[in-house]
Amino acid sequence: MEKHGSANWKGGLKDGKGLVSTQSGHLSDRPYGFNTRFEGQGGTNPEELVGAAHASCFAMALSMILGEAGMTPENIDATSTVYLEEVDDGFAVTRVHLDVEAQIPGADAAKFLEAAETAKVNCPISKLLAGAEITMDAALV
């Protein structure tokens, strides 16, 4: 399986502007730039896109693992917070934190937490982020 995203950038780092798109077209020519990444202005940025990819990958992996354990979730809400920090040689994603809340009728809390931990370690995007510390808070609601 191959999927791609694309970006176009025009100008210098601080005054330049970019557009980011996905193969599916659901994200198409969305603006990004220094101001959206470092100054909190409207538009997207690479870290929130990675966070969305991680949260969605984790939720799917958790659903699969829960199903294998005989638990069917009614709902999984996952958020992945990506931390971009300045380090000695520039900027790096140093850590990622997953917050997950799941509604699973009749679920065993210990089995749920075990499944969440397995999903955290084994979803493909977690593996991609292996250089960063990945932490998690998980709860049944």
Rank of each mutant, 00 (worst) to 15 (best):
I104M: 09
N35E: 15
S21N: 08
D108S: 07
A92N: 09
L13R: 07
S24F: 08
N75M: 13
I76H: 05
G18T: 10
K3V: 13
K3T: 12
H97G: 05
G18P: 07
D99M: 08
M71W: 03
F91I: 02
F58Y: 15
K120Q: 02
L140F: 11
Q41V: 05
D99E: 14
Y32P: 05
E2R: 14
A7S: 13
S6G: 13
D29Y: 04
D88Y: 12
V87Y: 09
T79L: 12
P124L: 12
L62P: 02
G33N: 11
T79E: 15
G25Y: 12
K17V: 11
L19C: 04
S24K: 13
E86T: 07
N8C: 07
M60H: 03
A115M: 04
T79V: 14
L66I: 01
H26M: 14
L113I: 02
H97T: 11
K111D: 12
K10S: 13
N75T: 05
S63Y: 02
Y32L: 11
D99H: 13
A7D: 05
G12H: 10
A61R: 03
P73R: 03
Q41L: 10
G11F: 05
C123G: 02
A107M: 08
V20L: 07
D15K: 12
S126F: 02
I125Q: 04
C123M: 08
S24M: 11
L128K: 08
E68P: 00
L113C: 09
G40S: 04
C57K: 04
E101C: 03
S6N: 14
T44R: 10
I76T: 06
S80K: 05
H54N: 06
G18V: 07
E68H: 06
E86Y: 01
D29S: 10
E117C: 04
N35M: 14
F112H: 10
E68D: 10
E48S: 09
I65K: 11
K127L: 09
L84V: 07
G42I: 12
R95Y: 06
A61F: 02
L113H: 14
K120C: 01
L98G: 01
T81S: 15
S24I: 04
T44D: 08
K3S: 15
Y32F: 15
L62M: 09
A130K: 09
Q103Y: 01
A109N: 13
W9E: 06
V93N: 03
G18C: 12
D88I: 08
E68I: 01
